[in-house]
Simulated scan of single mutants.
Amino acid sequence: MGCRIMVVEDEIFVATEIEYIVEELGHQPVGIAADTASAFSLAPFADIALVDLNLKDGATGREIGRRLAEMHGVTVLYMTANPSQLGDGVPGTLGVLPKPVAEDELKDAVRFTVAHRMTKDGVAPRRLRTF
């Protein structure tokens, strides 16, 4: 299989849909994390994390993403309805995809994130803002 991808999202229906798309693209979902503790318990198993900002334990996604990238070498793509909360970006993370996200946009974003992890190359999809 391709990359191991973690979904950091507290809305279970959104998270399971993202996992389904990840699997459909040939990658391995490693789990859904709805808060900080579960994100870091899954971190050793993930190459990539798709991270929402507002989770069960509050607005912790920004810091989760930063720490996943810095401490675990995970490629982090934020997915949020509030991209302005990220300001100019988070050091070490890839970028942000604004929600809501159409299925095709999500597929393109996952493909780009995987390609970037492998080669540091690729053209970002139209709505994805890189840092």
Results as ranks from 00 to 15, higher is better:
M1Y: 15
I5Q: 07
I5G: 06
M6R: 07
V7A: 13
V7Q: 10
V8R: 10
E9W: 03
D10L: 04
D10S: 06
E11V: 10
I12G: 07
V14D: 07
T16Q: 15
Y20I: 08
V22T: 06
E23S: 14
E23I: 00
A34S: 11
D35N: 13
A39W: 13
S41P: 04
S41M: 10
L42Q: 11
A43S: 07
I48R: 01
L50A: 02
L50P: 00
D57N: 12
G58I: 14
G58M: 09
R62Q: 11
R62I: 13
E63W: 12
G65K: 00
G65S: 01
R66K: 13
L68F: 05
L68Y: 01
E70I: 01
M71Q: 15
V74H: 05
T75L: 00
T75G: 00
L77D: 00
Y78W: 03
Y78R: 03
T80Q: 14
N82T: 13
P83D: 15
S84I: 11
D88A: 10
V90K: 02
V90M: 07
P91S: 08
L94H: 00
P100E: 10
D104Q: 14
A109Y: 13
V110R: 13
R111P: 06
H116S: 04
H116Y: 12
M118P: 02
D121L: 15
G122F: 07
P125I: 05
R126G: 04
L128Q: 08
